[in-house]
Every structure is written in structure tokens, then in C-alpha cells.
Lab assay of single mutants.
Amino acid sequence: MEVRTIKVFTTVDNINLHTQVVDMSMTYGQQFGPTYLDGADVTKIKPHNSHEGKTFYVLPNDDTLRVEAFEYYHTTDPSFLGRYMSALNHTKKWKYPQVNGLTSIKWADNNCYLATALLTLQQIELKFNPPALQDAYYRARAGEAANFCALILAYCNKTVGELGDVRETMSYLFQHANLDSCKRVLNVVCKTCGQQQTTLKGVEAVMYMGTLSYEQFKKGVQIPCTCGKQATKYLVQQESPFVMMSAPPAQYELKHGTFTCASEYTGNYQCGHYKHITSKETLYCIDGALLTKSSEYKGPITDVFYKENSYTTTIK
């Protein structure tokens, strides 16, 4: 009895394709271990004539594949690729409408935090270190965002349907971005203890939790000093293409032309909904596939993004 075979390709990165001759009487799992086709788990399936010449994702289970996976995804987590594939199996079914010149995501599976993050990423200057993220990001900007969303979920250790947080998501993504040249110098002034300067680099240099107003941050924000008295913390120097200011959701007025974009969060910790506000020729609110415009805006804002380049204080 002759062994019926077909020729397929296996890959971990969709760049390096490895030619395989597979036995049609055995499952993919018996031949390769966990195997995925377009995100779908085909591990328990036997090869079919229609699979001839198709590319299958496999887990990096030998040295060659491990090197290829690390170079593309910059992670050695053995569960990463499987999590990416199972997320992709959902995100490829989502709709990605162009809204006001940006790629958004039609609401499904509690994905409003991903839509808000995706919209924000198209408006701030950011370059990702893992080629996987950078490639998928370019495709997302062009309207094909399924891979990018699935990668975000995998890097953030999230599953489809789980509630997510924009600030946490951005923080994970910033860790995989090139923020080497970003720098922030802060000064804390206390009447009792004097003053202390701190220099922050990388992710810490672009994120701040405690106030939404970048102007206020430049002037000074009140913080408790270690001595128990009130101290003032203010920005001395900022070198970065953008800054992200966050605070627990509270009524906040966004003035046209003073910011790049913002995240609105309605609801409580267990259950809520994100919308995205962007400042173009007027203010726009993007909620999944829905767009509304207004000249002014007041609502429960939790993150505001500002364009920056270089700032030095005039406070002496």
C-alpha cells in the first residue's frame, strides 16, 4: 500500500517557510505537534488534498525554529505562539472599519479597549522592536488589523473576551517599542525636605499616572512627601515624541487643539466601556464603527496623549 502524501510549508514567522512532505494517514499533531492554519487549530486533523502548498504555523520545537521565533517575536515564552494563534482565530472574524481616516474595530468580545489602543497607536510616533509587531502594525494602518490585535493580546497575556485596560495595554506595548531616546527629568520640591531631581528613561519617561493635564504637570502637581507634608512635583525636561497622561476616570474637559487623542471610560472596574476622542479640525468621538463630532467635550476621561518633541522648564 502506497503512502499518500502532500507537500506543505511549516513556519513560526510566515517569513521562513520549511518544506514538509506530510503523510495523509496521520494527523498534523502526530507529525508536527500543535499546528495552526489561519489561526485555526488543526492539530487533530489529517492532511487533505486542499492543504497542498498551504502554510501551517507550528510551535518552535527545534533550534532553527526557536531562533526564527525569537528573532521575529522577541520572546522565548513557549506558550506565546499558541496564544497568538488562538487569538487570531477570533480577531480574523472582527470587522476593521476605516473611521475618520483611522483603522478602528467594530465592537465584539469586549474589544473596546483594543480599538482605543489601536486608534491611539496610529496617532503617536512609535516604532516597535519585534519585527512581528512592526509588520502587523503597518498592515493594521492599511486596514488589516487582525494579526496586530492578536499579537497585542498575546504580548499582554490576554484572551479574547476578557476586559482590558488601555493604560495597561499601552504599557505592555511600550515595553516592546523603541523608547531608548526618551528621557524625563522631574523635580520634587518640599518646604521641609528641599528639592530632589529624578531622571527617568524609556517607558517611565512617557507615562504618568495622577493627572490628565500635561500643562498642569509642567506647572506642578501636589504629591505627598515622605515627611508627610505636601510637596510639588513638576516637569523639568521632556525628550520624547509623545507623552501619555493618565488618571482614574473623572469628568474632564478636553479643549480642541490642546491634545492629540484621549480615552474615555464609562462604567466601573468590573464592567465598563471605552471610547476614543481625537482632536482634528474639530473633536471626534470614535466608538467602534461609530463616529460623532463636537466642538467641545466633557466626560469621564482616563488617558490623554500629547505630541511632544523637546521641553525644558522655565521655572527657576
Rank of each mutant, 00 (worst) to 15 (best):
L119D: 09
Y155I: 03
Y234T: 09
E253I: 04
T282A: 13
E239M: 07
A231K: 02
P78H: 08
N16L: 08
Q216Y: 01
A87D: 07
T5N: 14
N89P: 07
Y284Q: 10
T282W: 04
E215P: 00
C190E: 03
D135K: 10
T314H: 15
S171L: 11
I15L: 12
Q251W: 12
Q237Y: 14
W94M: 07
M24I: 13
T76M: 14
W107M: 05
L254R: 04
L290E: 14
H90I: 10
F305S: 02
S181L: 09
A177F: 01
I105Q: 06
Y234Q: 09
T169L: 08
K93F: 10
D63I: 04
S171A: 13
D63W: 07
L254S: 02
T258W: 00
M26S: 13
F56L: 11
Y306A: 02
V42M: 10
G164W: 03
D287P: 10
A262I: 00
A117H: 04
T226Q: 13
F148R: 03
E253T: 10
P34E: 14
K46R: 14
E308H: 07
Y172I: 15
L179R: 01
T75Q: 11
K46N: 13
Y269G: 15
N111K: 00
G164F: 03
F9G: 06
H256N: 00
G161R: 07
D63M: 06
P78V: 09
Q30A: 13
S86D: 13
G29I: 02
Y284W: 11
E204K: 14
V3W: 11
G210M: 03
I15F: 15
F80D: 03
Y252C: 12
H51I: 04
Y36P: 01
N110Q: 01
V243F: 00
A136N: 08
C285R: 09
E296N: 14
A177K: 03
E162Y: 00
T75P: 05
K219A: 11
V22E: 00
K201Q: 14
Q230E: 10
L163A: 09
S104Q: 12
V185R: 06
N268V: 15
H276F: 13
Y311L: 08
D63V: 07
K95A: 07
A289V: 07
L37N: 11
H256V: 13
K293F: 11
D13W: 15
T120F: 05
